[in-house]
Design a protein around this nucleic acid. Structure first.
Lengths: 243, 243
DNA sequence: AGTGGTTCAATGGTCCAACCAATTTCTGCA
DNA sequence: TGCAGAAATTGGTTGGACCATTGAACCACT
């Protein structure tokens, strides 16, 4: 039975508002950080109520596309285009060990693939940029005795960018934020990330040699060390805090 | 219905509303498909305006946690718990060929990892479920001469579920939607997906044998055939439609 | 019993007109 | 000129109203 009858669509005010707004952003070539019209103006221009405008903007805010600052205005936080795919991921119980391990499984898959693609497609400029970040990171690691998480992250981002596929950076960035929320609840492992340090250079070497399989293997080793650190942290946590 | 729902305190109203609602859902042990209190009741119990309740629910709706049906009510679409983490991803630009190829690169990484994890962790029940979906799909393929995309998709979903990590299903589902948007613009390849057919059973065989590396390898072969189909479709498209 | 139409209450969707709170901008005094 | 305070701007919240859709109850007719 293939009687295909899609549901009819009668009203979709706020969706229409978002569509119009996306068109406006495109028209005015607005980029991240720029301010978009006030709610009152939008309501008047689009001939809808300010409430409707608010519902639409609330959706964009929930998607992280926009930031509202009371008394100031509403600002773009990311590039928006009329053809966007929204992918709201929900991780239940994300504050626990199992949740972190699940994100790490995703990251393992993506990190390895990104490194391999990078080895295949990385041009001279991209590889030079990665090496620059690597040098910065190694320097920070030495001078600050291991606390180089920010520089570490920048190195990885450079790899994702050089993969030629922006989706890698987008997805892994979201997971990175997740990790940071966890760090606020610091788990007793003081030297977290130490073990992963040497693999950054080995990954870079394989990328620079345009060796996809080697890059993938080194990336997997790096993730494995992070998993070990996480397991150690979980063991510590079990003995102390329970919130 | 016990009158749980204590009044709200101050500042960050809608966030507080969501927190209270999440607590309420847990208290009442509500699951997907169940109806939650009407906006007017929530507004009264939480001592906030109905508009504030609406903004909060709009956020949940945008995250796919809840579905609102005018004239009927608001219903849960997924399990919610007070400690949830959300990672809204917006992937820009996916309507063109290059965009599709980018999503396929992500899918290649995830599909392979999911198959491998499934081979490691899949229990008897999960594997039996996968086999059931596989039989249905093969049957549909034979009787309908290749048009088995729906059953095909259900097979893959069963694999993601058996991986023990719900993130695989969430991420790849979003990409699957993207593909469907593209199929609406059908590209001239009539036998799209034919080439991938045999690999479904080989993937299953490796999973059932608890052979992670074999499962990963077969999954990669499957994705490779899809990439080929897509390239052929792009070549066709270049000669005809340009939208 | 069942079919179709009508009524009616419940519910989400939209609108309006205020007011509050945070921020920015302007103004006038020292 | 410098800066503190007033005024305007802007998002956040409120309360009340009405519209559109839904679903259940009811009713008439076959």
């Amino acid at each position: 039975m293939t009687d295909f009858l899609p549901p009819i669509q009668t009203t979709a005010r706020d969706d229409a508002v978002l569509k119009a707004l996306a068109g406006f952003v495109r028209q005015e070539a607005l980029g991240p950080g720029e301010k978009l019209p006030t709610e009152r103006i939008l309501a008047e221009r689009l001939k809808v109520s300010r409430n409707t405008v608010r519902e639409a903007l609330t959706r964009w805010e929930g998607l992280g596309l926009v930031e509202r600052r009371q008394g100031s205005g509403t600002y773009l936080k990311a590039a928006v285009s009329p053809d966007m795919l929204h992918m709201p991921l929900t991780l239940s119980g994300g504050n626990d060990f199992a949740g972190l391990m699940r994100t790490l499984e995703i990251r393992r898959a993506l990190e390895a693939e990104a490194a391999a693609l990078c080895a295949i497609r990385g041009g001279k400029a991209e590889i030079a940029e990665i090496e620059r970040k690597l040098d910065i990171m190694e320097d920070a690691f030495r001078t600050r005795a291991g606390m180089s998480s920010e520089e570490d992250w920048e190195f990885h981002q450079a790899v994702y960018r050089a993969s030629g596929n922006p989706l890698f950076e987008q997805i892994i960035s979201a997971m990175h934020e997740l990790f940071h929320r966890f760090w606020e609840h610091p788990l007793g492992v003081r030297d977290f990330g130490h073990a992963s340090f040497p693999y950054h250079r080995t990954i870079f070497d394989r990328i620079a040699a345009h060796d996809p399989d080697g890059a993938r293997a080194e990336a997997l080793k790096l993730i494995a060390t992070v998993e070990d650190d996480l397991k150690r942290g979980a063991a510590n946590l079990k003995l102390s805090d329970r919130r």
